[in-house]
Amino acid sequence: MDEPQRPQPPDPENLKLDRVEARAAELLLRLVALGLILYSGYALLRPFFPLFLWAVILATALKPLHDGLAARLGGRVKVSATLITLGLLLIAFGPVAALADSLIGTVKAVASHVETHGLRVPALPAFITDLPLVGEQIARFWTSATSNLQATVQKYAPILMPSAGELIGMLGSVAKGVLGVVFAVILTGILLAASTGLSEIGRKLADRLAGRPNGTHVILIATRTIRGVSRGVVGVAVLQALLAGVVLQFFDVAGAGLMAFVGLILCIVQIGLLPIVGPVLIWAWATMPATQALMLTLLLVPITLIDNVLKPVLMSRGLETPASLMLVGVVGGTLSAGVVGVFVGPIVLAVLHDLAREWIDGPDRDAGSGSA
């Protein structure tokens, strides 16, 4: 009688392979789950990243002011952060409120004048008619507006005025921008209040990512660059707007204060004073005596171009990064990332410059220390 066959013991190699496959499948599932969680968090927080970056930049730039104010207040860090936050909100919305009030007053004055004297189109200056290519078209449009303003407005209104949907979209964008500014300023105050602990966490994280000496050095470079760019961008913008406002006021240019405020905003966002100065100079040469227009030109043109000299000098102060490289970072960052890139671009190039120099000088330094 044949004996029943006994089951063969499992092959150790197959068991090991099965375990490896099971662990690989489990690891893959964990990675997929972790990736989904991280992506969900990124999708939720992505709208806040630019605002958080702005808050970090503002908090870093204002940290010395915060420390000095807190010391004067007897170490009351939260009170200092609250005062700075309120000051930022006042700076952000005070001029806007004044501008809105000025615009409302201007509209009321224009409406009152139209109601009293009627709406009349002034005569077109002769030099505009003589302009090549566009002078004839402008003169034809101006003549049409002079003879029948209502018909001209009805004819060109669809071209000049945005549709209702576009207007609502513009208002929504403005409201979104205002809320973003408020959120960034409040977050700046929170970061300032917890700046000591957050600075220590940032140093530890940088040391874990780049090594203990390198991480702290990168944080130091980023901090100095942010403060240098703040001086170079905001400081030069305030200087340009102030000087332009004084010159315009001295020459009795209407709306000098409003133009100086708009020029300040244009300088901060890296557009410059040219959109303000250009039309003013054209108007000056068309209406003022030649000597007076020449004096205004000789004053406004250097003020418009002075940022090209002062900005690299102020931004590179306290840094070992060349001023030319800082200027390239500002221009490249502005073209690639807008206003935030004004700060991020120089930081990235400063860190890359320092790391490249460390890498190039590293072997010579090691050889020198070894021979010693």
Rank of each mutant, 00 (worst) to 15 (best):
Q154G: 06
V246E: 00
V110T: 00
G235N: 10
L73Y: 04
D252H: 15
R208E: 15
T196A: 14
R365N: 10
F183L: 13
S147D: 11
H66Q: 04
A241C: 04
V313M: 15
A55V: 14
V185R: 10
V121G: 06
V174R: 08
T225P: 00
M326G: 08
G245R: 14
L299M: 04
P363L: 13
V280W: 05
A237P: 01
I303R: 10
G362R: 12
G118S: 04
A70V: 06
W54F: 12
D2T: 08
A241Y: 09
T334Q: 13
T143W: 00
P122H: 02
I219A: 14
I347N: 02
A151E: 10
P162C: 10
V313S: 11
G177D: 15
A237I: 09
T85G: 01
V309G: 07
M1E: 08
G345W: 11
L274Q: 14
Q292F: 09
V339S: 12
R231E: 11
A206L: 01
F127P: 03
D354I: 00
V185W: 10
D2Y: 03
I84Y: 09
G74S: 12
D101M: 08
R6N: 13
W142Y: 07
G228D: 05
W54L: 10
Q5V: 11
A55L: 12
V77C: 06
L45K: 05
E115G: 07
R46Y: 11
A25I: 02
Q137P: 00
T85S: 09
I306Q: 07
A139G: 03
D252I: 03
A193Y: 14
A184S: 15
L352T: 13
L15K: 13
A367H: 04
G278K: 03
A241E: 10
L119Q: 06
S147M: 11
V236Q: 00
L299C: 02
V348S: 04
L305M: 03
V218Y: 12
W359A: 13
I306S: 09
L89T: 05
A59N: 02
I186W: 11
A210N: 01
A290I: 10
Q249W: 15
V339R: 06
L27G: 13
P289W: 05
G245A: 14
I226G: 04
D252V: 12
V178Q: 07
P275K: 13
Q150N: 06
L266I: 05
V234K: 01
G105C: 00
W359H: 12
G202T: 02
Y42N: 09
A22F: 08
G87P: 04
L53F: 01
G215E: 08
L160H: 07
T334Y: 14
A175F: 14
A194F: 12
L34M: 10
G278I: 03
L296M: 05
I265T: 13
L103P: 01
G245H: 13
P132W: 09
L264M: 01
A145Y: 13
R231A: 09
L192I: 10
R120Q: 10
M1F: 11
P125W: 02
E3I: 08
P132F: 07
V77Y: 00
